[in-house]
Design a binder for these strands. Structure first.
Lengths: 124, 124
DNA sequence: CACCACCCCTTGCAACGCAAGGGGTGCTGC
DNA sequence: GCAGCACCCCTTGCGTTGCAAGGGGTGGTG
């Protein structure tokens, strides 16, 4: 059961998936299934990571050297691929997070209704 | 070309362009060129709208009935296509803005570093 | 022994934004 | 008088990203 009744819980801005993944793995190594759940509960159900985008992203990040993958055994005694951050990944997470904050706040700002609309008729 | 943290001012999250456009036109009718500049200065130069995405988006919004287009004359005595909000557009802007706020804050939240990482190891 | 939760993955497909192009017009300056 | 720039319109690729929809395998539980 979704925690918040905000219509559909999915849909996340393009480009944020990788950041969310990196962030999730920053705490401790996790496997795909776990990452998905972790992000979901961390966002209180607001964000939903589909497997169809998760795994490709995971492989992409490994290829980019931002993530490291190791086979291991899950808590439930299953074979699972555990992902962990590399230095490159840690750096990317840091820069990416800063960038996200800047851009998202700029958008929110630009989207906010203006109390006192200035005369911006011209481009000049 | 990797991500440059502070240098490039462009790059905006997928899906926000239309909202930004609708918002820009909400004040008063504007033409494409003006919308582009308006968004740029409204975001203090943080957001950059390329013409290659602007015009397709504009046409898309008209097709969706969220924008109305009228030929007119600009302040500089040029022919220009002025866009204005329809009721559908106004509604979309409202809902879209609310949605953006919810999603973006959820992402920001999920991206924030945890001071005291709780034991969330399990999916169970 | 069926079924579910756990776990991995791939193949289309569609949307979005960008780069790179192209065209035309009113001023301004030389 | 005409070069050049700011103003304004548009389109065709292309790459990236995420989703839907599929498929497979295993351990525990009723």
């Amino acid at each position: 059961m979704p925690i918040h009744p905000t219509s559909d819980p999915h849909e996340l801005p393009s480009g944020t998936l990788e950041l969310l993944i990196l962030r999730s793995v920053a705490d401790e190594p996790r496997h795909g299934y776990g990452i998905s759940h972790h992000i979901k509960q961390r966002s209180l159900g607001a964000l939903l990571v589909e497997e169809g985008s998760l795994y490709p992203a995971l492989h992409r990040l490994v290829r980019l050297g931002q993530l490291r993958a190791n086979w291991g055994t899950s808590e439930n005694n299953r074979k699972a691929r555990f992902y962990s951050l590399t230095n490159v990944g840690r750096r990317r997470l840091k820069l990416g997070t800063a960038r996200w904050k800047a851009v998202s706040s700029a958008v929110t700002e630009a989207l906010a209704a203006t109390a006192a609309p200035k005369r911006i008729g011209g481009v000049a």
